[in-house]
Write a protein that binds this DNA or RNA. Structure first.
Lengths: 204, 204
DNA sequence: TTGGTAGATGACCGTTCGGTCAAAAAAATC
DNA sequence: GATTTTTTTGACCGAACGGTCATCTACCAA
């Protein structure tokens, strides 16, 4: 809203320090002290910007979501692409992203939204709601794509909402298995099968 | 091996106390102290049976794997059932299990193997290997089923190994999304679509 | 009867956890 | 220039963390 020049720079540095840590480890395993040291910030200063650790991770979730929305996802769900190619593109993007992370980091880190969901969603309903909102948005990206594919006759009619949800689930599951093997190639092998998923409409 | 009567009872009590806690929360969030109190065991006694927390969670993983192998999974992958019905059965079993957990516990806890995988597999390669072995066994259950389905002509030929892996991924992904929504009905809605997954053979 | 050993006890270790707070410094407002 | 607000500092809190250890108890076999 107001100043924004160097004032909130501290806040940004905290988030920047937290992002890779939450992504590569876990919520519980990353401490505020470590984040503060890495960001060159005092603990009292941290709590001036974030009421709690949960608020920090929520900000981190938002930033990751923005990164995706303006990066891979924006490219993948480009309306100029034929609908089904967008899904190919998304799988490709996920694969190359995880692969590059592994090359740099030595490990496949997977999807931070999936990671956090399985770690905290039984313990913190507010975080669960936050993560659910991310998934809901992702689902609607798939749904819109499927609707266009059906409308243009590229694929036979199906329940776009349910199939979209199934595709999102499959993507998360593939990333999970890839992480278990610490091998992004799993994404390459299994990813394309996402387009074979189908849930028919009108099962009364 | 030797006595086994009441001697190792302490060990069993520790595992019994740990199981629901690791399942319903997370690895990092469950402390040894809490487990000891719940099991009525002294800390020094704990470390007499388990060299470390990691060894405890490995024992817990083994017990969960045994529970599954002798429970739902044994029923689902009954050779007497037609191959594709086994998969239906498994999905059903997963649904009813999660549903009953939610009714008792108030929350969907999901799959402990998936939970632990996303939490610890970047931090502990030994645990990751342990979990990977569980997934590998599950995958081969699917593969054998698919092989029989193909052999008996119930379904058209496909790459059984890859499709099996895809199905396992899908199952884990569906459970993840269900946990994000704290709603086992997601399993009911999305589960059956697992049979639509197909990866063709011989993509050279 | 004497060791040996498996098991249980409970105090103790250093470290880290998330979070608080009063005071000082810096910046913005009047 | 005075005042108010934002930001920073660093010490501090109690609790919990995973893990250790010397000691004691029970039971076994020789």
């Amino acid at each position: 809203m107001q100043r924004m020049n160097i004032a909130t720079d501290t806040r940004s540095r905290i988030i920047a320090a937290a992002k890779p840590r939450f992504h590569s480890r876990s919520y519980a395993n990353v401490g505020i002290q470590e984040i503060c040291e890495s960001a060159g910030v005092q603990k009292g200063s941290f709590y001036h910007f974030f009421p709690s650790k949960r608020d920090l991770v929520m900000a981190v979730i938002d930033e990751f979501a923005d990164d995706w929305a303006h990066g891979f996802v924006a490219e993948a769900f480009d309306p100029a692409l034929p609908p089904m190619e967008r899904i190919d593109y998304l799988i490709d993007a996920a694969y190359f992203w995880q692969k590059s992370i592994k090359e740099v980091h030595g490990r496949m880190l997977g999807c931070i939204f999936g990671n956090l969901t399985l770690e905290v969603s039984t313990q913190d309903d507010i975080l669960r709601a936050k993560l659910l909102a991310i998934f809901t948005r992702a689902k609607s990206r798939f749904r819109v794509t499927l609707e266009q594919a059906v409308a243009t006759g590229i694929i036979p009619p199906l329940d776009t909402a349910l199939t979209a949800e199934a595709m999102l689930a499959y993507l998360e599951g593939v990333i999970l298995l890839a992480k278990a093997q610490n091998d992004p190639e799993v994404l390459y092998r299994l990813g394309p099968a996402i387009k074979t998923l189908r849930i028919e409409t009108g099962k009364v």
